[in-house]
Structure formats: structure tokens, C-alpha cells
Simulated assay, not measured.
Amino acid sequence: MIASSILPGFRFRLADLLRRPEDEALLDDPVYADFVLPGWQRDRARAEAERRRAEAAARRAEAMAARLRELGIEPDDIRD
């Protein structure tokens, strides 16, 4: 491992200089994750948050549809 004395946290594996891993692989590597492609990391975090929000919304919608069915109302029959 080679670490910078000037840039805190900047370090790399000598073997990676030869192997040249894909950028996306570096995002998940604990050696590089703190400083590699911060824009990608933010985009990935935003996409994950959106995925979780969409899943939660889908669960709420399904719960509401189930409740309507319990009341004898078919959700597909409801119009705007």
C-alpha cells in the first residue's frame, strides 16, 4: 500500500496500478471509496434513496388497495 503524506486518506495498492480496475469497482473498495469519483458516489446514493422511496410508495399503494378490497371496492374501478 502506498499512502500520501500530503493528501490525507489518499492511498493505493501498487498491484492496482498494473491491474487497473474499472472505476466502478473502486467505488466499493474500502481503500479507494473515500476519494474516488465523489460525483458517482453521490449519484449512486441518490439512486438508492429513490429506489427505497419507490419501494415504500409501492408498498403503501398495495396496502391501500388491499384495504379498499376489504371494503368491497375494486381499486381499478376508481377513477381520478
Rank of each mutant, 00 (worst) to 15 (best):
D29S: 00
L26S: 05
Y32A: 00
W40C: 05
I2E: 11
L7E: 14
D34S: 12
D43G: 10
R53M: 02
F35A: 01
A45T: 03
R51H: 09
A15P: 06
L68A: 02
A63S: 12
A15S: 14
E62D: 08
A49N: 01
R59H: 08
D16H: 10
R42G: 00
R11G: 00
D43Q: 15
M1S: 07
E70I: 00
I73W: 00
R52C: 08
R11F: 10
D23A: 13
A3T: 06
I6F: 09
R19N: 09
L18V: 10
L68C: 01
R60G: 02
L27M: 12
D34V: 04
A15F: 08
A45D: 10
G39R: 15
F35C: 01
G39W: 03
R13E: 15
Q41S: 12
A15E: 15
V31R: 02
L17E: 13
R44Q: 10
P75R: 07
M64E: 15
W40Y: 13
A56K: 09
F10H: 07
D28F: 04
R19E: 06
D80Y: 07
A49F: 06
L17V: 13
D76T: 11
R11E: 09
I78E: 09
A45P: 06
E22K: 08
A33W: 04
A61W: 06
I78G: 00
R59F: 08
V36Q: 04
S5C: 10
A25T: 00
E62Q: 14
M64L: 15
E70Y: 00
R42V: 13
I2C: 06
I2Y: 12
L7H: 15
I6E: 15
A58T: 09
A25Y: 00
D77Q: 06
V36W: 03
A57T: 08
R13A: 14
R67T: 12
L18Y: 09
A61E: 13
A57L: 14
R46I: 08
D34I: 11
R13M: 05
D23T: 14
E22D: 15
W40K: 15
F12E: 05
L14Y: 05
R60M: 12
A33V: 04
R42E: 14
D34N: 12
P75I: 01
D23C: 05
D76V: 04
L27P: 00
S5D: 14
G72N: 02
M1Q: 12
E74Y: 08
E48Q: 11
Y32Q: 05
Q41T: 13
S4M: 05
M64V: 15
D43L: 15
L68P: 01
E55M: 12
A63L: 10
E55F: 04
R11T: 08
Y32F: 02
M64D: 14
P8S: 10
S4D: 02
E70T: 07
E55T: 09
R60P: 03
I6K: 11
I6D: 12
